[in-house]
Design a protein around this nucleic acid. Sequence first.
DNA 1: GTATTGATCTCGCCG
DNA 2: CGGCGAGGTCAATAC
Lengths: 231, 231
Amino acid sequence: MRVVIASCSVDYSGRLDAHLPQATRLLMVKADGSVLVHSDGGSYKPLNWMSPPCRLTVAEPDDADAGQGVREVWTVQNTKSDDKLVVRIHDVVADHSVDLGVDPGLVKDGVEAHLQKLLAEQIDLLGPGHQLVRREFPTAIGPVDIMAKDSGGASVAVEIKRRGDIDGVEQLTRYLALLNRDPLLAPVQGVFAAQEIKPQARVLATDRGIRCLVLDYDAMRGLDDVDSRLF
Amino acid sequence: MRVVIASCSVDYSGRLDAHLPQATRLLMVKADGSVLVHSDGGSYKPLNWMSPPCRLTVAEPDDADAGQGVREVWTVQNTKSDDKLVVRIHDVVADHSVDLGVDPGLVKDGVEAHLQKLLAEQIDLLGPGHQLVRREFPTAIGPVDIMAKDSGGASVAVEIKRRGDIDGVEQLTRYLALLNRDPLLAPVQGVFAAQEIKPQARVLATDRGIRCLVLDYDAMRGLDDVDSRLF
DNA sequence: GTATTGATCTCGCCG
DNA sequence: CGGCGAGGTCAATAC
């Protein structure tokens, strides 16, 4: 990785055109040739950038640029599309190159997939006597997160979200409409399960006869840990 | 801005939990206290980060950490939520502080929204006598970019793209199918408007009775400037 | 203020 | 390789 702090102006052209007037910024050149232009604020998103696969070439400024005080012109050309980033470098404050090696990568936890796994393991959270049929139950319009049967043997379709929103209820509604046309499954009861259910979503779900279930992730994970230790 | 290159391990807890094992990375501390952790690959997104508003505090390692070779422990605490980032610094390769000043900011141009706004203002580009009904005309499957009426009062639905591709034609086709089922609107004529229309897209559109309109962005912007100056 | 939508989205999964 | 869904989405705009 190369890190350059320099005053520069930047032009991007591709899916849109964008221009950054001259100012002092941080330029990050990664091992794959991608370039990030950061200012001293904003979010984690750079002001401007070029994603890999791309190629960085450095050239001398033409007379017009040189007259404006440009010392170097970087051209970062995407090798798949015609996206192009041009960085005109004026004064360089710092220039460091470091070999970082390959990053071991991020370990994530707490995503929807984990909630699904935990609920499948703790299926009686749906109610006493429930049995897991399968996770990612396939249908023509996509997989249902969890399919189960209640204590009476009736089908239960569960849609799981971290944040239960209107969209999730709509999704489950589409599944239920489809599943209930299958005489082998019907009637299918719907359960909308999430760590947090928005009021609008709860109203819509209730109106459609869908049961809402708030999942306590920490408690579920705690039980999972106990299970892991016991067995 | 402060840029530190150091071997470190990182833990995030908040909306999810994530952990980065020890490796050499670039740490960026911005003026607002936000912190970005970058590796030498990926895209513009950092491996891990803390968004403002937040506060960075630096502490000595406890005995356990010190025994692992930790020299400093950075705690970045979001001041609005309970999101927290902990960076354990081992060996520091480089450490630079620079005053970048306030960035003049990005000037974007040619984005779809701008094209939409310009076309709405210059609606007769669709043909003489056309009238704007509204931008972002709502339908059950999403908003149509522009709805208009031609000189004879017939409905015209316009889909706008910067680069006109097959996808855009498909999208417009779906809108037209829906709109034409509404007896108050039907028959609805389709117009596919873009700065550049790919040959495949043009063939598909023509085949479906959709009119193609190439937008001259510079000319439209020029007219807009003239308007701004005149009125 | 909240809600919705686009993004040079990015990122991961699964076919 | 493409499609689809989720994101610690972020950020801008309409309401």
